[in-house]
Design a protein around this nucleic acid. Structure first.
Length: 213
DNA sequence: TGCCTGATTGCCT
DNA sequence: GGCAATCAGGCAA
């Protein structure tokens, strides 16, 4: 496979850090997955951080359950859940094992395997025309990359999935906002995105630069 | 057991 | 801007 395995795979130690640091550093990194039809990749341009402690919006807030077990497992693994009965959402486990924190990947900029992504995202009436609709949202990118709940708990070790270092995003291009769609914990600006990147799922008025000049 | 809500998306008006 | 699709977990009864 020409593009596999990818280089500069981030080690477990990268994810075994404070969740907000990992979330911010994840911007600009590349999510890779080995699809039967080839390697797929995209640049991470939008994420949300979810803690266990004092974060009522986190799935881990009420402690370990069968569904969120992987959230309390080793860092650097996937936590995949289904939302609204339809869409799968891709998270990466952070902090030391047992804490119960993760980062939701909300948007990617497609880099490799656009043809496969377009086929996966095609509608009953035909393929998607706009590249932006491929991966600009948590449910969309999961579908485009072919990630589902069977990937829950899977390590980012380069066997099927990996996150690799990319071009670092400077503070001047990082924005933080409240998390999308959460009813509790909205006071925390724990959504991070690359300012101006067209693949960010959506912008909200309270967007503020992480680097205030 | 039954009802309600949710880290969403796409189609409809 | 409204709303259906679709389902698992939490909680009330």
């Amino acid at each position: 496979m020409r593009d596999w395995p990818p280089t500069s795979i981030l080690p477990m130690s990268f994810f075994a850090r404070p969740t907000l640091e990992v979330a911010r550093d994840l911007l600009g990194c590349i999510l890779w997955i080995l699809d039967p039809r080839g390697a797929l990749s995209g640049k991470i341009v939008e994420v949300e951080a979810y803690h266990q402690f004092e974060d009522p919006a986190s799935h881990s807030a009420m402690g370990p359950r069968p569904r969120n077990a992987s959230m309390f497992g080793e860092p650097g693994r996937l936590y995949v859940y289904r939302i609204y009965g339809i869409h799968d959402c891709v998270n990466i486990v952070t902090e030391p094992q047992g804490i119960g924190a993760a980062i939701l990947i909300r948007a990617l900029e497609p880099l490799t395997g656009l043809t496969v992504m377009r086929e996966r995202r095609s509608r009953p009436d035909g393929p998607l025309e706009r590249i932006r609709d491929l991966t600009s949202g948590p449910g969309r990118l999961a579908q485009a990359m072919g990630i589902d709940r069977s990937d829950d708990g899977r390590p980012l070790d380069g066997n099927r999935v990996a996150v690799c270092a990319g071009n670092p995003v400077p503070d001047t291009e990082v924005c933080t906002t409240p998390r999308i769609g959460v009813s509790r914990g909205r006071e925390h600006p724990w959504r991070f995105c690359v300012q101006g990147n067209p693949f960010v799922s959506r912008s909200i008025p309270t967007t503020i630069p992480i680097h205030s000049h």
